[in-house]
Design a protein around this nucleic acid. Structure first.
Lengths: 198, 198
DNA sequence: ATGATTAATGAACACCCGTTCAAAAGCAAT
DNA sequence: ATTGCTTTTGAACGGGTGTTCATTAATCAT
């Protein structure tokens, strides 16, 4: 029993993920404040009370969605410090666009629903986001130091690039006029020029 | 009585703007769905019922704030077609940053609360925004045609530039490390490079 | 089959929502 | 002081909110 997995009496293993998935979809579609716990429960097919087997409260549902999203972002955003800055910047641009295009709902929530977090949770999410921004800024600083980039202020450049890249999510639709490959190529052109490379 | 309590009768000319101002502030701070009509009324200093002398319903309050904001944006965003594209692009960048920095609440609402509009109102706001984007795209197309800019896809470049410039609002604070003049100068550098000018 | 454990129900709690409207209160002109 | 008009009140409407919890149902180990 001590080493036995918790298989006893539950489709909790099924309901739990379904709750998070329903919350993600509804939060992204209607906004956190406009989605009731009863609406989430209805989407899952249970009563509202059952949700509290999987989350202590509504805000934790939102917070966990954001936290997991940003932790995945950080886990995958690894651009080895051995490569040259231009290569690492290209990797960053491609990674950012593809990662975000794959998760439109998570991205939307993580940017739009920050107001609904408690100050403590807000600080945690902001810290994760800051760590991601630092990955890019490190690349830019390395490139500037080596004379590969011509950048006046790496902090501004960092925020400008991320804003530009994240903006793709507001209009890109798979199956539209442009393939994601084309989008990546064009944004890489713009970023490369903006940092003054070549 | 040393302090006159708020009285009734003939304050419409004052109350109306105060309602819109309170709604703007609260919507930007807490989000549309999280702000009650009673909260807006409390900010103004009246009862909730009085608000309905100034708006038919809550959504119209939001819609009018967005509409007026975008109409002002369009009214001021006039870059004469006689100047050369590079000058007009510089004017656009400077105008966009300054106009948006002056109205953080309006900008925030107009980007974040679109979900809370009815389909008809949403379409109207989107049309206004599209007209603004077209002002920039016209500049980019003119410049590309004259060979002043090297742009593969003007539509993408338009959206990328606007996303980059609007991103300033997420971090710029008056009295911070950088003056608005410096911000304008740096973003102009980035945009000029991105479009391949010079 | 029994007992233990877990998950889900459904009702209840206290409170908040947007909106309406008759009544009251203020103002300006007579 | 009275009349006509505008503005606000305050209560009410029907319904929705997040959350709790005793009860019931479902599952698994023995």
């Amino acid at each position: 029993m001590l080493f036995m997995a918790r298989t006893t009496g539950s489709h909790a293993g099924i309901t739990g993920p379904r709750v998070r998935q329903a919350a993600l979809r509804l939060f992204a579609q209607k906004g956190y404040a406009a989605v009731s716990m009863r609406a989430i429960a209805a989407e899952v097919g249970v009563q509202a009370g059952a949700l509290y087997n999987y989350t202590p409260d509504k805000e934790s549902l939102l917070f966990d969605l954001m936290r997991v999203h940003l932790e995945e972002l950080l886990a995958q955003a690894d651009f080895g410090a051995e490569a040259d800055p231009l290569t690492r910047l290209r990797q960053f641009v491609e990674f950012h666009i593809r990662f975000h295009a794959d998760r439109p709902d998570e991205v939307f929530i993580a940017y739009m629903e920050l107001r609904n977090l408690s100050p403590e949770n807000f600080a945690q999410i902001e810290a994760l986001r800051r760590r991601y921004e630092d990955r890019l800024e490190t690349i830019l600083r390395d490139g500037a130091k080596q004379g590969v980039f011509a950048i006046e202020d790496t902090k501004i450049m960092t925020l400008a690039i991320i804003a530009m890249l994240t903006g793709v999510n507001t209009w890109f639709r798979s199956g539209g006029r442009l393939s994601l490959d084309q989008v990546v190529a064009q944004y890489w052109d713009m970023v490369r020029r903006a940092v003054g490379a070549e």
